[in-house]
């Protein structure tokens, strides 16, 4: 009971902190809050400005503004984009599924590859292959994702012409989508796998020294069996926490890749919002990303409990 409650309070507090930030930012930042709330670079006559001011409730007392804001969010109202003339929530919804597909596939592939390759790299630490793969992962993890994307785009799309260089598809068939998404997914997977690999490797090196691994060896199990049956499960626990906390980071990486690969997802939406100073849209996207990260963390907690019976027992 205590454990789940503590976690739940933590997530609710994070969500509340994010909402407060979102509420406070346009009102606290320099400049007229009306302009901060509708976005700059947009011409509004002075009379209309007053109209908008009362329409978004800026003339109300701050506590009332906050309850209105909270009420709106709970009903899926993220505000109105004066640039694109549409509800922020529907603008985001139309783009979100592509980005989630792109991020979801990459995170899952990155987790599987990172955990397996990291386990082998840690188990056989010191061999040439393991050293090479560790160094390569470090190099990838240290590269800004969009720069890596630019390199891949240059080599595989411009030079070799193997892949298209923009868009999600030419014709809406699954093969066209896979063909278009291959490069971006590859880059993001490499990125996420390399971070997981480094942590998994360290974790396996630690676990290798524990007594149960020695006992399994004494029992006469094959080397590979010890790793995949016993060590892998224990060693992957810190990686699962990492994957969840990293989700926001990978998601941000995806936004940059969408800009480089000209994919019409959340990333390009954010880019346009920055260029046009469309603050409501920008804040709405931040809120949606934050919610996605919180959901990813909850999923990781559940997964953790499935893998680690000690956590489950704490609850019983």
């Amino acid at each position: 009971m205590g454990y789940v409650l503590k976690k739940a309070i933590r997530y609710i507090a994070s969500f509340f902190a994010i909402i407060c930030l979102n509420f406070a930012l346009p009102r606290a930042m320099p400049g007229d809050p009306v302009m901060n709330l509708i976005g700059e670079d947009i011409y509004v006559p002075a009379s209309k400005l007053e109209e908008i001011r009362s329409e978004i409730g800026l003339d109300l007392p701050i506590s009332e503004q906050f309850t209105d804001y909270l009420w709106g969010i709970l009903h899926g109202d993220l505000g109105y984009s004066y640039h694109l003339h549409g509800e922020v929530s529907s603008l985001i919804l139309s783009r979100l599924s592509w980005t989630l597909l792109f991020v979801g596939v990459s995170v899952i592939l990155g987790a599987v590859i990172g955990i397996l390759a990291g386990a082998l790299a840690g188990w056989r630490a010191g061999t040439l292959k393991s050293r090479f793969i560790t160094c390569a992962s470090m190099a990838v993890a240290c590269t800004p994702p969009y720069f890596l994307a630019m390199l891949f785009l240059t080599v595989f799309a411009f030079k070799l012409g193997l892949f298209p260089f923009k868009g999600f598809y030419d014709e809406p068939t699954i093969w066209s989508v896979i063909h278009h998404l291959f490069l971006p997914v590859l880059v993001l997977t490499l990125f996420s796998a390399s971070r997981n690999l480094l942590v998994m490797r360290g974790s396996v090196i630690q676990e290798k020294k524990s007594l149960y691994a020695l006992y399994a060896k004494a029992k006469g199990l094959y080397d590979q069996n010890i790793l995949f049956r016993h060590v892998l499960r224990n060693a992957s626990l810190p990686v699962i926490t990492l994957i969840a906390l990293d989700f926001g980071f990978i998601f941000s990486g995806a936004l940059f890749l969408e800009i480089v690969f000209s994919l019409n997802g959340m990333g390009t939406l954010i880019y346009d919002a920055i260029m046009g100073r469309d603050y409501p849209l920008l804040q709405g996207t931040f809120l949606v990303i934050a919610i996605a990260v919180i959901v990813a963390n909850i999923i990781a907690d559940i997964l953790y409990a499935v893998l680690d019976p000690r956590i489950r027992r704490k609850d019983a």
């Binding site: 997530y11 926001g248 980071f249 941000s252 954010i270 603050y279």
Partner: peptide, 14 residues
């Protein structure tokens, strides 16, 4: 839990 880069993007935009 708060995603850092999106938060920094929003702050920097303002």
């Amino acid at each position: 839990i708060i995603p850092k880069i999106p938060l920094i993007i929003v702050l920097a935009a303002f």
